[in-house]
Design a protein around this nucleic acid. Structure first.
Length: 487
DNA sequence: ATGTCC
């Protein structure tokens, strides 16, 4: 007997534990799959996620199935938590399936401090981080510069940061793609986008972006944690942000240009917000180059914040950052498309793997994984809410077969920002976190704290449990917040 | 996510 579930007229068949399929029927190009427990599926079925996922199967060249990760929710055209692997020769590339915040991502910095070393300094630390790391809407970055320098950043990514003394070679090696997209083309980024980025290099932004000091509370796999340099009670720093106004402008520019140039093609798609450029078109090449440039910008952004975090820790603890061993564990992108070779029906094909609110999760043995982690798998960082803490996973053995080497990227929202502001008051959330959980939060705006209240997020434990049980990403360590700054 | 409209 087949178990089925229906949401808003869309029927899903349960293939096995945590795997739900929307079978292919006209006009779908391939089936769609949702990877979720029953509990998470209820939430995913609540908004437009499933319809968007069905729509996504109509993108030409989509391989095997359109995927929704356990933390999925509705997005612009294509679901957040969506993975779409599309033939790079005969298919298309879709800015809507990458997202507005190109290379939004997360990095974790280790320290050799323990929670005891930090206790008593939380207030000073959170204030100093807040004062020294720009956050909130609009301009004001750690580096304010000109368009020529932005061009360098766009073309060279962390190579630029190393040359300028903001990064070490080790930092570079511990980023996805080693912090540099070689196929980035600055010329394909508009002057307007570059001007928006000029004074935003080294800034957190707003919304769900944050910097969090955390302590490691649980280790689930001692040998992998050892390879990642993680141990109980250790202090780590998590940075979550993206490419700010520059990436947003790149996405807007190309959505508009694609609508203008490929209008007829778009009319064949069920939702114009899926806007995609045919694989061999000039616009596809330009978007891929511009997206790569915005990806480089985001890596430099997170690196400058890392640099400044090291400076703040040096002042607060009166030690060098090298002495505190503040090394980058890893930096993952969760809003990108990338040409990757994947096995499809026995053939290896070059695919544009779109991960929009999804994280690459390559298993042990892959050459893309940094040498230090190659025997255990790629580190995957999954932040939860500011009251819940986060997880470090390692890419699971099944990820290449099941998800084109991907897993979830976070807890995922359960309610809109508007609803959150009705249900929560920033000051109350902030005081509760400090009094009940010794979590020190500082934000530019009380509204942001209300919008990001722990209660508006899904259960990150449940998201990670599903990832682990599917074998696409396995829990290595869990952290709990100590200090959090946001926009 | 985002100078929440060029």
């Amino acid at each position: 007997m087949t178990t089925t579930r229906e949401f808003q007229g869309i029927t899903l068949e349960r293939l096995r534990e945590h795997v739900w399929e929307i079978p292919q029927e006209e006009p779908m190009g391939v089936p769609a799959r949702v990877l979720a427990s029953e509990e998470l599926l209820e939430q995913i079925g609540d908004d437009k996620t499933l319809q968007q996922l069905k729509n996504a199967t109509q993108l030409p060249g989509m391989q095997k199935y359109a995927l929704c990760m356990p933390d999925g929710h509705q997005g612009y055209g294509f679901p957040v938590g969506g993975v779409g692997a599309i033939d790079a020769e005969t298919g298309c590339i879709s800015p809507g399936a990458v997202g507005f915040d190109i290379n939004c991502g997360v990095r974790m910095i280790r320290t050799n401090l323990t929670y005891d070393d930090l206790k008593g300094t939380e207030r000073e630390l959170v204030n100093s981080l807040f004062e020294n790391i720009p956050s909130g809407l609009g301009g004001g970055g750690i580096v304010q510069t000109d368009v020529d320098t932005v061009d360098e950043v766009l073309e060279r990514g962390l190579d630029w940061a190393v040359e300028e003394g903001y990064a070490t070679r080790e930092d570079m090696l511990h980023c996805e793609d080693e912090g540099r997209r070689p196929d980035a083309v600055a010329d394909y980024v508009s002057e307007k986008a570059k001007n928006r980025g000029r004074n935003q290099l080294g800034s957190l932004g707003s919304g769900n972006h944050f910097l969090e000091v955390q302590r490691v509370t649980d280790i689930y796999q001692a040998d992998v944690a050892d390879a990642f340099g993680l141990q109980p009670d250790q202090i780590v720093v998590l940075i979550h942000c993206g490419s700010r106004g520059l990436g947003h402008q790149v996405c807007s520019d190309y959505v508009r240009r694609i609508e203008q140039k490929h209008g007829d093609f778009l009319k064949s798609l069920p939702d114009k917000d899926l806007a995609a450029a045919p694989a061999k078109s000039q616009l596809a090449a330009e978007y891929y180059g511009a997206m790569g440039a915005a990806i480089n910008f985001a890596w430099v952004n997170r690196q400058l914040i890392t640099h400044q975090t090291r400076r703040v820790f040096e002042r607060v603890f009166d030690r060098d950052w090298q002495d505190m061993e503040m090394e980058l564990l890893y930096d993952v992108a969760h809003n990108i498309a990338k040409k990757e070779p994947h096995d499809v029906d026995g053939d290896t094909r070059e695919l544009y793997v779109h991960r929009k609110g999804a994280t690459r999760a390559f298993p042990a043995g892959r050459e893309e994984v940094p040498r230090a982690y190659r025997d255990v798998g790629q580190p995957v960082i999954i932040p939860g809410s500011m009251g819940a803490g986060s997880y470090v996973l390692r890419g699971g053995a099944e990820s290449m077969n099941e998800t084109f080497g991907s897993t979830a990227h976070g807890a995922g929202r359960t309610m809109s920002r508007t609803q959150a502001k009705k249900d929560y008051r920033g000051e109350t959330v902030q005081n509760d976190l400090e009094e009940r959980n010794q979590i020190y939060v500082k934000a530019q705006s009380g509204a942001t704290i209300a919008e990001e209240a722990p209660g508006v997020y899904k259960d990150v434990d449940e998201v990670v449990r599903v990832s682990e049980e599917l074998g696409i990403g396995d829990a290595v360590a869990r952290t709990f917040p100590v200090c959090n700054i946001k926009g």
